[in-house]
Write a protein that binds this DNA or RNA. Structure first.
Lengths: 202, 202
DNA sequence: CCCCGACTATGACAGTGGTCATAGTAGCCC
DNA sequence: GGGCTACTATGACCACTGTCATAGTCGGGG
């Protein structure tokens, strides 16, 4: 999961990836450009070369990367599920985090959430990047739900519920250093989500 | 809701309150001590007098204040509800945020969430303060649910679900500058919460 | 060989942060 | 009044940030 473990990518992509990693751990403001370069094992001089827009551009790209990653992840979860159900998908989304927290500790949260908290009011372009990331993510989840038989108009709403509940649970889990909030939310929401399937006549 | 509007309190409390306000808007790292003093209309020299522990202490007290505030708020919501139900309480919790966002704009989020994102990994004492704040808040909600007839062992779990879903929805609403996520989560979770009442034989 | 573009390498700069040191004021008690 | 405590006031310090300027390296095409 660290940048050093994926040296195959070019330095530019490593820096975007590394920025996302550092942001989700320390927040946007506490993540320095020099730190990103060092973490990505990239030369400091490359920062201004690849990101002439400065930190703002780097952060926005990191957020965009995180949004795409989350979206793609949904498709992979779907493919891995033997019999896809909304609750099963949500359980997989949650499990990604419980797995990380149990094996790697509670160091990091969601980079999109971090960027929202730190930049929503101060940096307009980053706020838009965050909104776009949530949109991408939400779109993937909604599409997955629709494929499972959830009516179109409810798929988007439930996708937002899933993402929101997950983000909140991540927050609480990190604060408490306990995955309890994550497992709770998965168990409680599972039946509700499954109940939304195929009830078009509701 | 601003510090300037509540000049009755002493300077120390104004600074704690003001810190919470600034943190929830810009995050912990982007909130300066000088800025807090100016915002609270308190002398800069008082910072080191009242908070010898520095910024860490100020932030921790701000987080603690926010936790108590959120907890007390629950009791007031309960008192205001004609016929208290879990879903009704949750709707009130959500409405506090939709009201703020519709009248005052999307400038601020939850200070506890901001402190979690910015300090969970870097500052141990703040992480504990955040955990305590969530514990306080969760305790108030759980007690309210229990009073409404939710079995004790489920009250705590559902309280965490409510707080988590609310926090996540706040995040998304701020990113999108739209209360949609908040209203969605309230509508979707309401029936689920109400269904938990009085089912001790479940 | 030389030029040129892509990329790297550093040093400097101006701004800001939290914190400390020091001095000053106000009010109360003896 | 003297002295003590609570609080205020300000300037300085040092670490650090994002950004820029400048120069260097390297590889390929003319």
């Amino acid at each position: 999961m660290t940048a050093a473990q994926t040296p195959r990518r070019g330095p530019r992509e490593r820096m975007v990836f590394g920025a996302a990693q550092l942001i989700r751990r320390d927040g946007v403001a506490s993540t320095g450009m020099r730190e990103v370069a060092a973490y990505a094992q990239a030369p400091r001089g490359s920062l201004q070369h690849y990101f002439p827009g400065g930190k703002e551009q780097l952060v926005n790209e990191a957020v965009g990367w995180a949004g795409s990653y989350a979206g793609n992840r949904i498709d992979r979860f779907l493919a891995a599920l033997p019999t896809p159900t909304p609750g099963g998908l949500f359980a997989e989304m949650v499990r990604q985090w419980t797995d990380e927290y149990e094996t790697a500790g509670f160091a990091g949260g969601c980079p999109v959430a971090a960027a929202t908290v730190d930049c929503a009011e101060s940096t307009a372009s980053t706020r838009e990047a965050v909104a776009a990331a949530f949109r991408t993510w939400n779109g993937s989840v909604a599409r997955a739900l629709a494929d499972m038989g959830v009516p179109e108009e409810r798929a988007g709403v439930l996708a937002t519920l899933m993402i929101g509940a997950l983000e909140g649970a991540i927050l609480i889990a990190r604060a408490e250093r306990d995955v309890r909030a994550l497992t709770n939310v998965s168990r409680e929401l599972g039946p509700l989500l499954d109940g939304a399937v195929h009830k078009s006549g509701d």
